[in-house]
Amino acid sequence: MTVGVKRVGAATFRLDGVYVAASGTAVGDKEWQGPLGQYFDLHWTPPPDSKSFEQEERDLLRRSQDVALAKAGLDWEAVDVVLGGDLLDQLVTTSFAGREHGRPLLGLFAACATFTAGLATGSLLVAGAGAQTVVVSAVSHHFAAERQFRYPVELGNQRYPTASWTATAAGSTILDHKPHPLRVEAVTIGRVVDWGQKDPNDYGSAMAPAAVDTILRHLQATGQTPAAFDAIFTGDLGEFGRRLALRLLNEQTGEDWSQRLDDCGRILYDRKRQDVHNGASGAGCSAAVFGGYLSARLDAGAWHRLLLVATGALLSPTSSQQGESIPGIAHAVAVVAEGG
């Protein structure tokens, strides 16, 4: 088995010997009742003794990590590095979980793109630096995010048609140097793209150009065509953002990507029945959708090759109030089902 990493583009790396050992997912009520509910491992409910939404988020993260380790048949001692992030200030969820598992920890922030930022970094550590087992996690909690980014939970306000619903979800994926059915083929680290969108109720339009930029850079560097992928999933563009991304891709490549490109945030909920307008967002969304639904599709042989491009809106409540536009970022990870 060869292990290695080769730089094939500005920040695109082709990898050998990096595998997905297992993923664990834990989601809240609303996510469990959505169309993807059957694909998740754990229907998480808040522990009765939790004192805050922030504590609940920590519990959610821990549960997803425990499930992933159990599925991989590993214990914490076997983990070389933990990578991950959340949406709360100073990454408290990820860091506080670290004081319990005690493993080397690298906290990452890329908003809702955190999961693929972690997968990319983790894959590079395994392929290029000899790490053997890396846990990559991302988590978000609807109410914890809501009170930090928007309004108090009980404060009445109307949601905008372009606004997305922060998912209560956590996904943990274990990267391993030993062969498993799913292999990480290549990663592209995204760059910040800001086309001047300012509406804090519409992240989709702010992030779509970043998603398109990363997708095209990844394909250009690896020499692949869109047809190489059975599915390309962006992070949390939602319905509106996906339509914009399709329009941009069509404009720049002359091709229709609509059969190939979908979005994690768009499919997590039944957008009509569950009243979430644009779809889901949150660091945990793409992590849980990958660990649940997308991995299952690859495992089942329905798809052979997947490009996961989680997207993040890199704003803060302060930057938004100060009238700054919303920078977007997207990191891409190509996962291939070996022998599929």
């Binding site: 048609p161 969108q197 519409d202 339009s205 319905e239 509106f240 339509r243 914009l244 329009r247 307008h277």
Partner: peptide, 8 residues
Amino acid sequence: WVEAMRPK
């Protein structure tokens, strides 16, 4: 496009 396609 953003303005034209934005859900009302």
